[in-house]
Design a protein around this nucleic acid. Structure first.
Lengths: 231, 231
DNA sequence: ATCGCATGTGAATGGTCTTTACATGAGCCG
DNA sequence: CGGCTCATGTAAAGACCATTCACATGCGAT
């Protein structure tokens, strides 16, 4: 509707790098060439997914949001799915970074770090629902983007490394495979995030904070592994 | 006119005057009035979701599959979402039935019954991906259909009743809330089903069967609760 | 300063969704 | 039996979206 609002907007040209606050808005000031369309399209996708769900945005929507013609996005992405796959890949990158930060090499102790890790997972799902949707719920094929699978693997690797440190605390006799532990933790956390993670009115509500539910689950599970929390 | 463009999914419909009570076409003989369009549309939705995912089917698709004009479905469902919500509701009904059957009132013992319950959950996700998608992944609002929320609650209630029996086996001193246990189990199982549940090439593969991963998780969790498997 | 090429535009094509006015026939009531 | 009514289905029309193609623009290399 507003993609050709050329009437207004005295666009000062000259490689206008829109670093300002207007960055978040549709149709930033620009000349014939957008200058940063690829990035803007990804931002548009994130906005639109956040608003209407991963299925609720179209390629044309993204173009409109970015203030370009409906054909412009094709210069940057083969189609809508390619854009979504790129969003998912970036999501995994950020996810990995967030998890790595939370884990912080297991400091000050494995237990506390693990707790942070779980909270960071849920926090990411809450704070970046668009990324999370693209990563896990949009049904993006793993090979839709070069590096998508690798990005996902790298994110999981953080969890797996954490699990490796964790199982070292279990009694040597009954030490479980770290991979299995990582998968259990991932599944439990993803399940909570997926079922109750977001305050979304469309979803089920919980009689307790999701963080607490996860932490309690951790504690029980770790106890089952023979690991007790340092008190 | 023939609405089916002869393309597509080898549909058993079309002009087939099947008198053979085939379940594939309850509508059977087709005059001006279909006779059973509502049911046929739901069946169409299930077929199409199974093939192309919950986002990959359209109202017009369902109409084409059923062999009616694109406008006909609007006589039975307000829009595509209403159809999806109805599918989700029926899915929860079937889900509840499957879980109830698996639980079988906890016979012969709580432990074995719980194991069956988990496997039935994963089995449902595998065997009825269309229902499962509509129930959990399609983002259908809980109030999109009268009775949808109740149907979901009834399904969860099965799990919760099972959890109540389960916690009775925990040492009385540290008996956890059944609701919390039910939520943990649900989350873990849903997480596994959601991440690895289906052999879908688009998803990640697992170094072990999903059933085994779940069972191992159960065992660890129950041990953490102070419940030990009867040997 | 010029030129090539990446990037963006406009228009055209073909498909889909959704609504509206009209058609059909099943069930009901006399 | 006959007519009425209403649920159900059809046809056609309008709007939107995806995709492509010829063309325009101007950035950056030379």
């Amino acid at each position: 509707m507003r993609w050709s609002k050329s009437g207004g907007h005295g666009d000062t040209r000259g490689g206008s790098r829109d670093g300002g606050a207007g960055d978040a808005g549709p149709g930033g000031p620009r000349g014939y060439h957008h200058g940063n369309l690829r990035e803007t399209l990804i931002r548009a996708a994130l906005e639109l997914i956040k608003e209407k769900g991963p299925a609720g945005f179209t390629f044309a929507d993204a173009a409109r949001w970015a203030g370009v013609s409906p054909a412009a996005p094709y210069r940057h992405f083969r189609d809508r799915d390619a854009l979504l796959a790129d969003v998912a890949r970036r999501g995994f990158d950020q996810f990995e970074a967030a998890l790595t930060r939370a884990w912080d090499e297991g400091k000050p102790n494995t237990f506390a770090a693990f707790d942070r890790l779980g909270k960071a997972y849920l926090d990411f799902a809450r704070r970046e629902p668009a990324y999370y949707s693209a990563m896990f719920e949009a049904g993006v094929p793993l090979d839709a983007d070069p590096g998508l699978k690798d990005a996902g693997d790298r994110a999981f690797a953080v969890l797996r490394r954490a699990a490796e440190k964790l199982v070292l605390q279990a009694p040597e006799k009954e030490r479980p495979p770290a991979l299995m532990v990582a998968l259990h933790i991932w599944s439990l956390t993803h399940g909570i995030a997926s079922l109750f993670g977001r305050g979304d009115a469309a979803r089920r509500t919980l009689p307790m904070p999701a963080d607490d539910l996860l932490e309690a689950g951790f504690l029980v599970y770790l106890k089952g592994l023979g690991i007790t929390a340092p008190r």
